[in-house]
Write a protein that binds this DNA or RNA. Sequence first.
DNA 1: CATTTATTTCAAAAAAAAATGAAACATGCA
DNA 2: TGCATGTTTCATTTTTTTTTGAAATAAATG
Lengths: 170, 170
Amino acid sequence: MSPASNLDTQSDHAIGGRQLELESIDFFVRLMSMLGMPRSVGEIYGLLYFSQDSLPMDQIASRLGISIGSASQGLRTLRALKAVKTAYVAGDRRDHYFVETEFRRLFSTFIKDEIMPHLESAKERISRMEKSLPAGIEDREFYLVRIEKLRRLTKASGRLLPALSGLLKL
Amino acid sequence: MSPASNLDTQSDHAIGGRQLELESIDFFVRLMSMLGMPRSVGEIYGLLYFSQDSLPMDQIASRLGISIGSASQGLRTLRALKAVKTAYVAGDRRDHYFVETEFRRLFSTFIKDEIMPHLESAKERISRMEKSLPAGIEDREFYLVRIEKLRRLTKASGRLLPALSGLLKL
DNA sequence: CATTTATTTCAAAAAAAAATGAAACATGCA
DNA sequence: TGCATGTTTCATTTTTTTTTGAAATAAATG
């Protein structure tokens, strides 16, 4: 049984071939999962990536064979990442979604929203380590050196990561 | 109930205070989980990070309150990442583990082993997309442009990521 | 303003990932 | 070689994450 057997086979118009669509979904499911995103998020982005028309939520759900709950949740995630945007379509009250294809911007949001907050709390945690170091401890130097290493790691990451998307010359 | 309530409270010698140890475990559990590693891997690294002596597997397991199966599996992962090394201890046939603290090297292995293979298969997938593009398709240009964008993304990532650890000035 | 249509929310179910523990396998030692 | 100690493996259990589906909410339309 093919992995895509539950994809809606109707409404195939305006799609550059089912095979391309499947490859795209596969591609982005893997990419998103590397970034810790659930399958449905990759599926949605993958579907939209090769879609010329923007699509409403219910069509996304039915084409992918996922529930509207998943689609709603997945689209929320993608909106937060600025990975999809909505288009107005005259005479239709549904939101129509299309992808942001500038990966540079996408990663930049991802780093800002998903990584930097962790780095912030890491800094606090390192301060707590220093405080929790008993006063008259043996080999105080050993512990201080290792704590300092962590501080340098977070400092360097905090500088490097936001610069990363800028280096991405696509 | 404290999150660390199942940590072994015996054999507390040679540790710079339980609090420091707990903060360290907490720190690395989060860091590793950002890299998609299971909790146990972070726990082990966190325990070893502030340990002056190298520790055998059974002590790691009992101090963390995890099974030896988990410890074995976690140490295998850490060895593969070159994040821990083993030390010979005279008169003891057990392997004794200690951490590699050069994060630069650690990340470099991580990128090479966990990311680059995916990039490789991504390239193949992009080629397949191009092939699966129907010959006489309308708006061929639209699809080709999007495919090309993916290719540039993988190219740029393939160059940037391996260079990353070099940029990490710690 | 009642009705239809679209979307979100969230408890429950399903699926996926991780941990356990015991058996199998190694390995050093008497 | 046979025993004892240490480690890995892997089927099972537990935990965590994701999806579902139905109810609640919101929002446009006649």
